[in-house]
Design a binder for these strands. Sequence first.
DNA 1: CTGACTTTGTGCCGACGCTAAACAAAATAA
DNA 2: TTATTTTGTTTAGCGTCGGCACAAAGTCAG
Lengths: 400, 400
Amino acid sequence: MERGRSALGPALELVHTGRAPTRAVLTAELGVTRATAGAVAAELEALGLITVDARPAAAAGSQGRPSHRLSVAPDGPVVLAAQIHADGFRAALVGLGGRMVATAPGCVTVPADPARIIGTVVEEGARLLRETDRRCLGAGLAVPSAVAEPDGTALNPLHLSWPAGAPVRALFTEALAAAGVPGPAGGPLAGVAGNDVNLAALAEHRHGAGRGARHLLCVATGHRGVGGALVLDGRLHSGSSGLAMEVGHLTVNPAGLPCHCGSRGCLDVEADPRAFLTAAGREPGPAGSLLHQATELIRTSYDTDPAVRAAVELLVDRLGLGLAGLVNILNPDRVVLGGLHRELLTADPGRLRAVVADRSLWGRSGSVPILPGTLDHGSLIGAAEAAWQPVLDDPLAVLG
Amino acid sequence: MERGRSALGPALELVHTGRAPTRAVLTAELGVTRATAGAVAAELEALGLITVDARPAAAAGSQGRPSHRLSVAPDGPVVLAAQIHADGFRAALVGLGGRMVATAPGCVTVPADPARIIGTVVEEGARLLRETDRRCLGAGLAVPSAVAEPDGTALNPLHLSWPAGAPVRALFTEALAAAGVPGPAGGPLAGVAGNDVNLAALAEHRHGAGRGARHLLCVATGHRGVGGALVLDGRLHSGSSGLAMEVGHLTVNPAGLPCHCGSRGCLDVEADPRAFLTAAGREPGPAGSLLHQATELIRTSYDTDPAVRAAVELLVDRLGLGLAGLVNILNPDRVVLGGLHRELLTADPGRLRAVVADRSLWGRSGSVPILPGTLDHGSLIGAAEAAWQPVLDDPLAVLG
DNA sequence: CTGACTTTGTGCCGACGCTAAACAAAATAA
DNA sequence: TTATTTTGTTTAGCGTCGGCACAAAGTCAG
């Protein structure tokens, strides 16, 4: 059996995430000798994945021989990333380092049946690939639904009016074959599919506000409902069957609204954009625009409208209760919020952090940092991250 | 740097947990060649950790050359395990395979100050060690409190009337030195300390009802409050600072009792022995006997006393709600219950499983197995497991 | 009982990933 | 200029593991 250089994957991940800007840092991070780090970097360069710049802009102030600069290859291979959400879909090519190389304009279409829309978004991606000469090493798809493993089926694509249990991964892989996208070995390309919040969390961990966190908790909301995700030691924790972090049914308001799950006051119905708009006395618009409507309302009227401010406080309190419960269970060392929750945090960071610190049992002794997400297209980048994973695990197995 | 045989640790763990009864199975489980597995087994035997029995009792019915039998060395090294609970403490020597080699009679003492009681239990353990000629490779202590890392301090030793923040690991290590317990290298022995429920979960995963589970969730109650633990891919998940799985403050009864955390209806006050006794119309006895009182009541009167049966149903419903929340968040592939919860499950297994399946979102499509714990002294065995961990990770680093 | 077959255990060799150590290179400091 | 510091490279060697051939110990068919 082929045995690749085992430090190759970790080294690529360090360059990929920007945590190894030089061979010297790479040596320290990998815990190997300079000789090994040098050999590994040379091999990654030979594979066309990274570049070594012997003459960086200007040496820093420290003494000693200046380091060469390591960076991801600017014209290296890419992966095909696709995202489907309530109000459309998007396709892109993403290189190492989370760099968006090419994007198809975000098409706004009412999602019809899964096979059709997945076929369409894959065709967009295939078109982008034909316009470039860069190799495609993988493909990832983000959907607003839990994706069961090992089947790759979408269990609750609620906002998409898809049938529950749609085999999204199989449809994705079939669409890739139909669109003529070749895999790295020339054969067919196997796609990966995942929940959008999970994938966004992975992207935040690699390239965003979660960088360097050991245990990262992400909570985000799209238009309806609340999603969670957990990255443990750099790996997405999706549970034993891909269904972990369905956090929407934590009780955050015992006297609250009834939820379709049978309980009352679930996070899902108490801390999503619809709940916010209702609390602010606004009429919720069409389903596909709830997030934008709520975000705009906060950004434009938080400082001026007392009703908006009161709604923010209410939702911050509920969200804080849910976050505190999750922090007590998972004990992450960082929390990153997305979607509406990110806006709530930005609007009133002190209150949310205080609520969580107050309710999490060890809040006083070093409470957990809570940060807003920093990526614009987290789910899309995350889909790319999932597609890169085999390469990051063992570059030679994919490229060798 | 010394580089031990890297398959040595995994191989020892497989024999330790009984998952590799023969070299052939070991070969398959490790994913190596027969030659490597044979060399690894020979080295473990040379280290005195396992024995190879070339002539097992009787060959099984299958054809081909019969395997030699692998087992943990019956007179191999041991670790010192100690446990402190609300109504006393206990010390034991535990060999590989989770075998209790020697036990000091469980002393029933009201825990006074941490240093005194830890000193006493360590002296008991040291006495056991003096009565044997087996080497001691580590020491572990289980306490009924969250233990913060990396400090090793007990944050909420509520039932022990200890000061919060007692440095239990340091006290344990000091007591080991004071009692003259030598480490494997002749120097002082560094002890490890952990929460009792966490350690019991580790023990159940290695030697009990959790064996073979990928993601194991354990929930248990002692006399007061509810504890949780999570074993992910064979490693205890204790969070970024050792405080994970504080599950006692999940809301399971929105109209329930006020909890000291400020909320109402927390699992901690709704599903512990005191809550059960109250629900059954019994007067709770002294704090240190609540678990025994509740257990006895279920075992003797569940079949005959309608009030007891009603109390079981009530607590099963509340516990089920809490478990469903945890299952939705963590998506384990097995759940093991201890303490009173184990009794509740045994009394009415159908109801608890139905409640969890009903409330966990994907309950219908393959609900998670819920099993009673099978170990008598789980926390003690778990303390030993934690002490064995360095040996299981790299036997040569400890023994070489 | 004998021979074919199946499965397990072992010895030998080579590939490969890494460490260690010496050396070379490129900067700063005196 | 020379010494010092830090980085990169070369070479030798070691240890782990895969591959292979062979031996060992049983079952099964006749």
